[in-house]
Design a protein around this nucleic acid. Sequence first.
DNA 1: AATGAATGAGCCTTCATTCAT
DNA 2: GATGAATGAAGGCTCATTCAT
Lengths: 218, 218, 218, 218
Amino acid sequence: MSEDDTRHRILLAAGEAFAETGLHGTTVREICRRADANTAAVNYHFRDKENLYRESIMYAHSAKVTQFPMPDLAERSSAEDRLFAFVLTMAKRLLGTAEMTWQTSLLFREMFQPTGVCRELVEDFIRPHFKMLKGILVELAPRELSPIELHQAVFSVIGQVHFYKMNRPVTEMLVSEEMLDQLFQPEEIARHVTQFTVAAIQQSDKSDLELPNPSRLS
Amino acid sequence: MSEDDTRHRILLAAGEAFAETGLHGTTVREICRRADANTAAVNYHFRDKENLYRESIMYAHSAKVTQFPMPDLAERSSAEDRLFAFVLTMAKRLLGTAEMTWQTSLLFREMFQPTGVCRELVEDFIRPHFKMLKGILVELAPRELSPIELHQAVFSVIGQVHFYKMNRPVTEMLVSEEMLDQLFQPEEIARHVTQFTVAAIQQSDKSDLELPNPSRLS
Amino acid sequence: MSEDDTRHRILLAAGEAFAETGLHGTTVREICRRADANTAAVNYHFRDKENLYRESIMYAHSAKVTQFPMPDLAERSSAEDRLFAFVLTMAKRLLGTAEMTWQTSLLFREMFQPTGVCRELVEDFIRPHFKMLKGILVELAPRELSPIELHQAVFSVIGQVHFYKMNRPVTEMLVSEEMLDQLFQPEEIARHVTQFTVAAIQQSDKSDLELPNPSRLS
Amino acid sequence: MSEDDTRHRILLAAGEAFAETGLHGTTVREICRRADANTAAVNYHFRDKENLYRESIMYAHSAKVTQFPMPDLAERSSAEDRLFAFVLTMAKRLLGTAEMTWQTSLLFREMFQPTGVCRELVEDFIRPHFKMLKGILVELAPRELSPIELHQAVFSVIGQVHFYKMNRPVTEMLVSEEMLDQLFQPEEIARHVTQFTVAAIQQSDKSDLELPNPSRLS
DNA sequence: AATGAATGAGCCTTCATTCAT
DNA sequence: GATGAATGAAGGCTCATTCAT
């Protein structure tokens, strides 16, 4: 009990710290200080700093999944509704509730430059979500999409949502504060991305754009 | 001449190393080993490890800008052409030429968690590009967009392109190799994103989607 | 127990080393080598090299004070006796017992060019001794001395004793060895200084010397 | 010319710096910065940092000797006059003119813990002065002094003067500022030391003090 | 089960010095 | 003759980890 307590406190503190300063920028001492635990506690409970990093990522993800579970999409009538629900859940997980954003920051770090923990997450969580989104978009499309087209559509959805997690700091330098608050509301993000995506996909039976020969652009 | 040579070699080596393992995960010794320079060379030429980090980011960006300059958009006839040219340049800068990807990795690290160098980049380069993209999308829209809508459209474009930089590792775990090569071609990315965006925006005079009450979805 | 042991060994080794080569001339590695301790032990036990320096000075002084405590002067019948006891204690502390001279060497370094530790020593120990000596000399004087005269007398006593600590190396080059042993005996020093001082002060009711006009001597 | 100029500027800067922070506490770069010379200039003109140290000590001494030459004592009528002249020159050299005190600080460092330069100084300058002072005191004494007594008297004179150089910092903590100015005037020091010494020595034909058995004092 | 003391490895940096020019 | 560029060695210090308790 007191054991699990300490272990858990370290897990939380480590997650926050790693999210802020990364694996190498965070010291074991700092983690233990934040967790109000002994310096040796990390090695005792987690064997390694690196192992603690791994476990804190797994924990970060499962915490987010528990906090914002994916709603049962089968219940929803239309593909648009399902897309909206999916995107909204994603946005909430990413932007979360104010101070609880470290989990996804940590995950992003790992996605961008995987240390090995990533693979596990991909198999357990990301691949299912990936398939789920593909299913929604297939339904949404007015004609059968090629595998390439389908992937591109999926990437476009995910990319649009991820933007809000990745570029918060830079956006703060570019946009007025009042607009920021509105733009970064998960519901508003979900609404826009859904609308944008639906509109784009439903146009996909129209003929392709005629674009200039890209040969000599750069 | 040997002066600038060593300095330049360190700058390159540092960029690569920082891109791989970040500021804290990279040691001065490793940088100097890669650059085949003395351990004290970093302090001699750049005073600080941190200052070297700053300079290597500035260098990374300017190298990319030089390598893939933004073409003169005024010459292009249509807004679509201009959007395509803009996105293509962005994609080329991000995905670059095979092994030369460290520069943008480094920049992404900095954007995600700015250390202060970022602000300078934002003012000098990102803000102009941001405005340029806004201009293109205003032209593209069939009706006048609200500031919020305009920002959301801009974010959607950028988010779609960034996806390909951010999620390469994860995507490799999800998609077959042959498809990967096709999906990550800058021209193909630019084609898709342009088409997707144009389609979405030109639908924006249609009535909003009627979405379910988002109150109890999570 | 092993805890205080290491700490104490470092304190001793540091004192010796600092006395020999000063703060800047002494390396942490050398101290730890002498103390047969790990290189990190200094930072662990004393946080800083500079803090170790400070603590080693405080220790050096308290060690000397413990080794040669000031006897209870109130018991002594005459002012001369008291002066002798005072000077003898001072001489013993300064010249100590053969190999244990590093403490005062260290203190002299600090007195000559204080680093801040000095101030504490002055308030705690030197000022009381200073007053004590003033009291003795007041008693000794045949008439009431002016504040200036009193200070000068005090300085003359201290200066005479300090000579033996300061100039041992130079004196060794000037005086035969057999004479050295005799001259540097604390008892002999105390005897001479007391006699010299008593004689001088008791003459102080005589009229001042008539000295030549010092205007053009240099 | 420009050569000697640089060399000389370094010699001056080095003396000041060494006096302030000692051999190890002073960096070659700092010296060259003060002398407004190239970093390599020290090695070029003086071969070594240590050799520069040696030369700066020699220079410091000769500068003081030139600035305050010992007056021709043979001209003076009485032994007291000669003692006064001797002590005054010594005091002036030690306390000098306000900002020009670094030379003697440097010399004191060297006297206290000789690095080898000292020996030369002793033979060339100190031994002659030592003999000179012995001669004066012999004249002054009312009876023939034993070699030991004579040395002790010499030491007492030197010690009294040295006090004012050694203990300025500590004294500043103990004595009011107005008194300080008066006490540290070379003329006043010479007056007091001469008077104190003459009085003490002229009493030396009186019977020795009867001092308590020093056996059990500590 | 849990921790305070201690450590070896390695960090960034500074130093006096050298060398080509 | 004199210097700016560069360097090998060493400095103080911090780190993750271990170990006796």
